[in-house]
């Protein structure tokens, strides 16, 4: 035991940060300029337009539009749908990614494909599926009517459609990472006496925490912004089954532009907050992997 072992970490050579292969100045400026122009026209201008339209008649009209009972109901419903859909998809996403990333079982590739289904089909179809199932002419619609359960054209339908559309986000973020990490650490944990719950809580989840947060942020953004699927099942009842995106559409169709853009600016703000959170999460996870 007295053996002196001199172990030194291998020195890593500093990586060159600038490339020595560079194009001529005018080529660089042309490319950068084209990219910037594209960004301004397609991303920045629309964002500016939303806020200028919303504030066209002053801050007073802006806040009056947001204070409208129907607008407030739409905001509340949007939050309710996201507050139910996101946690459920979080649990589902972790469970699915864990099963797919850490174990092999028959039907695994089928499960992976199924998880992608909501991305593959048009949101309108997603909504129609629920109408076909739970609508009055649908498979279990009559039974639901007899038992006085309302799903379609009511809040449960909106929540269901939102869950379906945002289904893949968390699982999609986690699966590749969990597959790359393998199950060595889990095996080590179990060999040290940890049970399944301890392994998940102390080993698996901390290793994917940034990807998980990233998935939740994207899932939430989509849950609050979803239009197509929710539109089909909502029935557009003002103050009852309108989410924020649906409310924007109704206001716009009534030529109530200030109110429409005021509500739209809330969604745009949500997008900006999402992007900021996403950038923060990405920089933190990069720091930790370095």
């Amino acid at each position: 035991m007295s053996a002196a072992i001199t172990l030194k970490p291998l020195a890593t050579a500093p990586r060159p940060t600038t490339s020595t292969i560079e194009e001529a100045a005018w080529v660089r400026w042309l490319l950068i300029g084209a990219a910037l122009a594209f960004l301004v026209v397609f991303l920045f201008l629309p964002l500016v337009a939303v806020f200028t339209e919303a504030l066209r008649k002053g801050a007073g009209a802006f806040f009056t539009a947001l204070g409208d009972p129907d607008a407030r109901a739409a905001i509340r419903l949007t939050f309710i749908a996201a507050a139910i859909a996101v946690p459920l998809n979080l649990v589902f996403g972790v469970a699915a990614a864990w099963a797919i990333g850490k174990f092999s079982f028959p039907g695994k590739s089928l499960l992976i494909t199924l998880i992608d289904l909501p991305f593959a089909v048009s949101p309108v179809i997603s909504g129609l599926v629920y109408v076909l199932l739970f609508g009055l002419q649908g498979w279990i619609g009559p039974w639901l009517r007899d038992h006085d359960v309302k799903i379609i054209f009511a809040v449960p339908g909106i929540v269901l459609a939102t869950i379906f559309v945002t289904f893949p986000f968390v699982a999609r973020e986690l699966i590749p990472l969990m597959q790359a990490q393998g199950s060595d650490e889990e095996q080590a944990a179990v060999s040290l006496g940890a049970n399944g719950w301890q392994t998940l809580w102390h080993v698996t989840l901390p290793n994917v925490k940034w990807a998980l947060l990233y998935g939740v942020i994207l899932c939430n953004a989509r849950a609050m912004g979803e239009f197509g699927a929710v539109s089909v099942v909502s029935g557009h009842i003002r103050g009852e089954t309108n989410t924020l995106p649906l409310h924007v559409e109704i206001l716009y169709n009534e030529y109530n532009f200030v109110a429409a853009f005021a509500c739209a600016s809330l969604l745009a703000l949500l997008a900006l907050v999402t992007l900021a959170l996403k950038a923060f999460v990405e920089s933190r996870s990069r720091q930790e992997t370095l």
Binding site: D184, A188, E288
Partner: peptide, 20 residues
Amino acid sequence: PIRERRVGFVFQHYALFRHM
């Protein structure tokens, strides 16, 4: 099961818990 066998297992690629 392994968690009750009390065996010390050392993995080829260490399998250290990277966040601990």
